[in-house]
Design a protein around this nucleic acid. Structure first.
Ligand code: DUT
Ligand code: MG
Length: 822
DNA sequence: AGTCAGGTGCG
DNA sequence: CGCACC
DNA sequence: GACT
């Protein structure tokens, strides 16, 4: 994967498996009208206006951001809490026992325990999910969701008119606007059926669903219980603040209007100490806890009252805490020398990607004039008026024409839209492949047929200029790629900047551990990267592409017009981000641990080596940080391979070793070296274990192997060895992976170990959609995945030996390893 | 409203 | 079960 | 977030 970080890169994969804790299930808007993303202006509109428009939207987006932020943090907090996050005391040791000097009204016993109680996250797997399993089990066929879903889709297809959103009259704001922005006009054609689905249509069209804070937080979780917050400004005019206030209330805080009965003073970020001093009776605040509005948010995030003394929560200009700053002053936390740098964007140019994350701790937000003005103005009028732009825009000719390389299987992999049933379409002008068919041929007997009957009629409308094209391109992984990146990725791709920005978004979500958004962005980026011919500028254009929906499409347009994404301005950029990246590259360190360390005040590798408690692997990994994080030139991989193969031959001449991973895909550089070890005639990896043991000991003796990170020799399971090695003379430390594979599973293992990971996943996804299951041991069929999503039946082995046959059975065109970059 | 790959080892 | 890894 |  060379330089390109996205696919397959460690970072990209860094999200962890769900563990159902992170099943975010946030909201999701279902797009119905093709142009739901459409902004009021049309293509021809002058750039200036577009920019102006975006600026106007700033306030609103801020809101969105706020939402995201909260949502995200809610997810995040679990990870952090579990990671023994220490609420108040940033000092290194002592885990439990948070000392909350000031906010002790409600001492929180032992955070860990508390958290588990607090999060009533009841996964509730919801039964009956296997709607799309083709080979559904008899009882599983009782699919219900399909009906409503289908209905919705139909409507979607019919709408032809475009909706426009009203540009916001700047001065106005808040909720009025919010509403306005979401207001939509019902497509004429759909109006007929509007009645039956109006709610969903509305939902689908509006930009996003905002969760009402109607949820009830269990009393035990109400960390603010007993506390009284006085806000400055003390009103809920600003929607974002209103939201925060509501949130605080949810957690037990009382919103007070007077300083007299307040316990905490929550100051708007944009206000400085000198500003709030003017407040009448401000003197009272001296005895109160004064923090900025980050404090409640963070506290909620961590489900515990944090130490309000942290610089992070200090109001700008607030007389510093008598300089007795507790123990250990965490440098980076408060330092932030030039906290004024800001510099929103302007010239841009800077590499958005990595280091640009130059934010400022305490003052991360730009001025963003609009958004929450201190003065108690009240929202005024706002004459919302909806504009209907009738645009008979014909379905984009694009769609499949997008670009050259397309192959059918590509289409599969990625979207696997309707693989098998991928019907007919072809010329049939009605694109509709809309797919509804998918379900119809399959089985309706159980009971829900009635509805299904009525829905199918209508439909034939084009409307969706969206990704209709069923198979044709749906990218996935076609591209050979490895070496072209030096030149191509950087200079060649016209969408470089866009990708760069989106990648930042992706990074952001990575930090937040939002699995699905990460993959969504990853996919979007991948398809964008494949548009090598022209620059995607408008939302429509972008929306046409697979895996780019309305929201990312909008962002793309914004990026192209403003060369920036407002979302990033306040979404990202904490100074600790670089540290986070630093830590994440350590083997056996993920988000959770890295964040934990950061919260403990560690900022450098040295800190970790001296102050943190590390596992053996982590220590090794830090001690050879630079070696292990640098990529291995192909030539060196070849040498390493030769070395190992030679030794292996001496141990057992019948054993075969093949280098897989990125090397097999033709990469110029690799993050590690992956060996697939097999021997003819073997049927279980246990047959190879003895060989492995001797090989490993030999390699150690030769000073080739220098560390073992993990080793598994379970019978029946694939066994693998992960360690570190180096070329004899004293080469750099390198990561090495050995996978033991019996001959009978060779093909499957080959696919697995060759990757890349995205390719594997799409293949497996495809298999799943075909009622099969693919893993590193083979391809199985008649798999029953029932309820709980857990495989009920393992399925019957179809093929495991031959890589090619697995492809065949899956109906996927053979792909050379070099074509497996997705 | 559900899905988004599928597995391992460790604590 | 969560985390980290492939 | 995207797609079904
Ligand atoms: O989440 C994952 C990670 C990896 N793999 C497979 C594909 C991958 O190709 C192979 C080896 O993993 P590795 O981490 O070595 O990735 P790589 O493709 O070899 O890239 P790199 O150059 O970073 O080693 O294991 C997966 O199936 N799922
Ligand atoms: Mg590799």
């Amino acid at each position: 994967m060379a330089s390109v970080p996205s696919p397959g890169s460690r970072v990209a994969r860094r999200y962890k498996k769900p563990g159902r804790l992170f099943d975010t299930l946030l909201t999701q808007s279902t797009r119905i009208v093709p142009s739901s993303f459409r902004s009021p202006m049309d293509e021809e509109q002058p750039l200036q206006e577009k920019i102006a428009f975006f600026n106007q939207l700033d306030a609103l987006d801020k809101l969105d951001e706020e939402d995201d932020r909260i949502d995200a943090r809610e997810q995040q907090h679990r990870a952090k809490c579990k990671a023994f996050f220490q609420p108040a005391v940033p000092t290194v040791k002592e885990k439990g026992n948070p000392i909350n000097p000031l906010s002790s009204p409600r001492p929180h016993p032992e955070p860990r325990r508390t958290t588990s109680v607090l999060t009533p996250t009841a996964p509730t797997p919801a039964p009956g999910g296997s709607a799309e399993i083709i080979k559904a089990t008899p009882e599983a066929t009782t699919i219900d969701s399909t009906t409503s879903r289908t209905r919705r889709r139909l409507i979607a297809d019919t709408s032809t008119s475009f909706i426009a959103e009203t540009p916001i009259p700047d001065s106005t704001r808040p909720r009025v606007l919010t509403t306005l922005r979401r207001s939509i006009t019902m497509p004429v054609s759909a109006s007929a059926s509007a009645a039956e689905q109006s709610p969903s249509a509305t939902t689908a069209l509006r930009k996003r669903k905002r969760s009402s804070s109607g949820k009830v937080i269990p009393e035990s979780a109400q960390i603010f219980r007993g506390l009284s917050f006085f806000y400055i400004p003390n009103d809920d005019v600003a929607p974002a603040r209103k939201l925060r206030i509501a949130k605080a209330k949810d957690y037990g805080a009382e919103w007070v209007r007077s300083l007299h009965n307040a316990t905490h003073v929550i100051v708007d970020k944009h206000l400085s100490y000198s500003d709030i001093q003017k407040i009448p009776e401000f003197g009272l605040a001296a005895s109160l806890i004064v923090v900025n509005d980050e404090y409640p948010i963070d506290s909620i995030s961590f489900r515990t009252l944090l130490n309000p003394d942290q610089s992070r929560y200090r109001v700008t200009g607030f007389p510093s805490p008598t300089s007795e700053s507790t123990v250990i002053t965490i440098s980076s936390r408060d330092s932030e020398p030039s906290l004024q740098v800001k510099e929103p964007k302007s010239a841009g140019r800077q590499s958005a990607r990595k280091q640009d994350t130059e934010g400022s701790e305490g003052t991360p937000r730009q001025e963003d004039s609009s958004f929450e003005n201190p003065r108690p103005t009240k929202t005024t009028q706002a004459g919302p008026f909806e504009i209907q732009i009738q645009s008979s825009v014909p379905p984009h000719p694009t769609a499949q024409t997008t670009d050259g390389p397309k192959d059918e299987l590509t289409s599969y992999i990625e979207l696997l839209q309707q693989y098998k049933d991928l019907p007919l379409d072809h010329e049939e002008d009605d694109d509709i492949q809309s797919t509804k068919d998918a379900q119809e041929d399959s089985d309706p007997e159980p009971g829900s047929e009635d509805e299904r009957a009525r829905k199918k009629p209508a439909t034939r409308s084009r409307a969706s200029l969206k990704k209709t094209i069923p198979f044709e391109d749906r990218f996935a992984c076609n591209r050979g790629g490895t070496k072209d990146n030096p030149a191509s990725s950087a200079a060649n791709n016209p969408n470089a900047r866009t990708i760069e920005v989106l990648q930042s978004m992706c990074d952001y979500y990575t930090k937040i551990n939002d699995r699905w958004r990460i993959t969504a962005y990853r996919k979007a980026i991948t398809t964008l990267r494949q548009q090598t011919t022209k620059k995607i500028t408008t939302a429509e254009e972008a929306y046409t592409l697979p895996n780019i929906g309305s929201r990312i499409a909008r962002k793309i347009e914004e990026i192209c017009t403003t060369n920036n994404l407002r979302r990033l301005q306040y979404a990202n950029l904490e100074p600790t981000d670089k540290v986070l990246d630093l830590f994440l590259k350590i083997h056996d360190v993920g988000l959770s641990r890295a964040n934990k360390w950061i919260s403990q005040g560690h900022r450098t590798l040295e800190d970790l080596l001296t102050k943190a408690d590390l596992s053996a692997n982590q220590r090794i990994s830090i001690e050879h940080y630079s070696d292990l994080t640098s990529r291995i030139p192909r030539s060196e991989v070849t040498q390493l391979a030769a070395f190992v193969q030679r030794e292996a031959f001496l141990v057992d001449p019948d054993v075969e070793l093949l280098v897989g991973g990125s090397y097999r895909r033709g990469s110029d550089t690799s993050g590690d070296i992956d060996f697939i070890v097999t021997k003819r005639g073997t049927t279980s990896c246990s047959d190879l274990v003895p060989f492995m043991n001797s090989l490993i000991s030999v390699l150690y003796k030769k000073n080739f192997l220098v560390a073992t990170l993990s080793q598994s020799r379970r019978e029946g399971e694939g066994s693998k060895f992960l360690g570190c090695c180096r070329l004899p003379p004293g080469g750099k430390w390198r990561r090495i992976d050995l996978l033991l594979v019996p001959e009978t599973e060779y093909g499957a293992a080959l696919i697995y170990f060759t990757g890349n990971d995205i390719f594997n996943r799409s293949l497996r996804l495809l298999a799943g959609k075909k009622g099969m299951r693919l893993n590193q041991r083979g391809l199985f069929r008649d798999v029953m995945r029932g309820r709980g999503r857990v495989g009920v039946t393992e399925g019957e082995l179809v093929e495991g030996r031959s890589e090619r046959r697995i492809f065949e059975v899956l109906g996927v065109r053979w792909r050379e390893p070099s074509e497996r970059w997705c």
